[in-house]
Structure formats: C-alpha cells, structure tokens
Design a protein around this nucleic acid. Structure first.
Lengths: 155, 155
DNA sequence: TAGACGTAGA
DNA sequence: TCTACGTCTA
C-alpha cells in the first residue's frame, strides 16, 4: 500500500492515512512520512528556502498537545527534557527556520505523535496535516531560549 | 516464520536460517538474533557468568573475515575505525568478558555480517554458529590495547 | 543512568 | 563530517 518514491513530499503521502502507526522511527523514514531518522523536524528546499514537511512529537521537548486539533511544538536544539543533555539557546536554522518559513507559506505539515499503547508499547501515530499559526521565541524551563511553534489541524 | 520468545537464546534461533537478511540492526533485535541495538556483542548470564550469544561484524572495528569458515573479531570499546571517536584501552568486561568466557565454555555464537548488495544497499546477513578458538590482547592500529577473538564455523 | 560495530540527510 | 525529539539492554 505504501508508495515511497524516495523524494520528499509536501502534504499527504500516497498510501498513508491518518491513524497509521509505526513502532520505530526508521519505519517513518522508509514509508516516506518523515525522512529524518532522529531529528524531529523534516524539511525540503522549496522556492529558494526551506519549508517544514513533517514533525515528530515524542515528548523529548516541552510540547503541548491539548487536543487533536492543535499542538504547541518546541523547536530543535539544546533543550531536551533529558537532564544529561547540555542546554543551549536554539538557533533559527535547520528545522526551526523551516517551521518559521512554513508560517509564512502556510504549507501543510504532517504531524506524527509518539504515544504508548495500553500494553506500554511505544508507537508513532500519523495525526494528519497541520499548519503553523504562530511562532515566537521564549525562555524555556531550562533557562535557554527556545522557539515555540503553534500548529492547528487542517480541515 | 520468526518465533521470538523475548528471551535470550544460546545457539540457533527458531525460524531463522543461515543466509537470512535484514536491512536494519533493530530488525535483528526484533527477530531475536541479536538483541543489542548498537553494541556488537550480545550476551547472557549463564551459570553465574556471562557468555556471548551473538556478534555483529560491521566493519567499524578491525575485523578480518578471510573466508566463510573463520573470523577474527575485535572486542568492543575505544578502537572504532572512525577517527573522530576517542581511542582508549579495551577493558575485559561486558561483551569482551563474555567472549572470553565463551572460549572456555565453547558455546555456539551466532555471527551476523554486515555487507553490501550489488546495488550498494547495506544489509545484515546471518552466517551461522561459530565458536571462539583463541583470545588474546594486542596493540591495535590506534595504539591502544584491543581484545582479539578468533572464531570458526561450527560444522 | 550510561553504553553501544546505528542511520539518514544536510 | 556532523547533527538529530533513536533504542535496546545491563
């Protein structure tokens, strides 16, 4: 059913439907839903600048998913929840820059959410297409600057 | 066909045959051939001491596979071929201790070999059961002590 | 909590 | 060559 062409896609991925699940990050890469094996934000060069194509919310940063309609997503770099990782100010580059550009462009972004089954098994669930509605910089709980992105479900 | 019981096994794994292939390390973990997702030596506590159960030869250390019958396998720790990794003397613990114990015990050890298909795709191939025939410490090419293990195919 | 022959893409 | 919301076992 999956038809990964190997090329990065903005928007829906053929053969992948909302609610589809994976156990490992590398499976998301294989089916073309999110090519980055570890990074939370995937992006593509489009019209001379990078745009975000998909994000993975796994709980490693301070994300907030209040309901199925909206999500507050923390940018990448230097603000892991894991205390052993060194904290530093996030830069407006790579994934963070891509998400900021996507606010201007209003392009659809695939959201993958890591959660746990009733039996405690970790899994990644495709939640559909979202757009960035807001983006600003704030001070994170670890005292360093973070980029915060607000997204809402595309209807 | 695979029947991973979740328990560590010494010897053949039910449903897995010599020549079986995987694309990712995590698949080896899933089918029970090699539970460690990154470490090259897997082991189990047996009769009060640890014994090696499987090894993965991926070329990250100075391994030598002259033919299908025998392999020279370098122990774990501090001697990656990658120059950016810091070099240090290998210790006789964890996987290295397990392989040394397996020399005494002469228990079968599964060998998985990472190689490349004709199309350049990386893959892990199960090569069968081996026993440790020799084990000693030497000075590696990076100037640090390494444990070297000689294994040969069990007929 | 840390260690370990991981991965793909920029 | 480096980055990155990895992933398992001890």
């Amino acid at each position: 059913r999956f038809v990964n062409t190997g090329k990065q896609i903005i928007g829906p991925v053929p053969g992948v439907e909302v609610g589809d699940e994976c156990k490992y990050r590398v499976e998301l890469t294989i089916i073309g839903l999110h090519r980055q094996t570890r990074a939370g934000i995937d992006f593509v060069m489009h019209g001379g600048r990078i745009l975000a194509t998909s994000i993975v919310a796994s709980g490693s940063y301070e994300d907030k998913i209040s309901n199925e309609m909206s999500i507050i997503y923390t940018g990448q770099g230097g603000n892991y929840m894991l205390p052993r990782k060194k904290a530093y100010d996030q830069k407006l580059k790579r994934g963070n820059l891509a998400l900021k550009n996507s606010l201007d462009e209003q392009n659809p972004i695939r959201l993958i959410h890591r959660l746990y089954s009733s039996d405690g098994q970790r899994k990644y669930v495709y939640k559909g297409l979202f757009v960035v509605t807001k983006c600003f910089r704030k001070r994170g709980t670890r005292g360093k600057l973070v980029w915060e992105f607000h997204l809402r479900l595309l209807l």
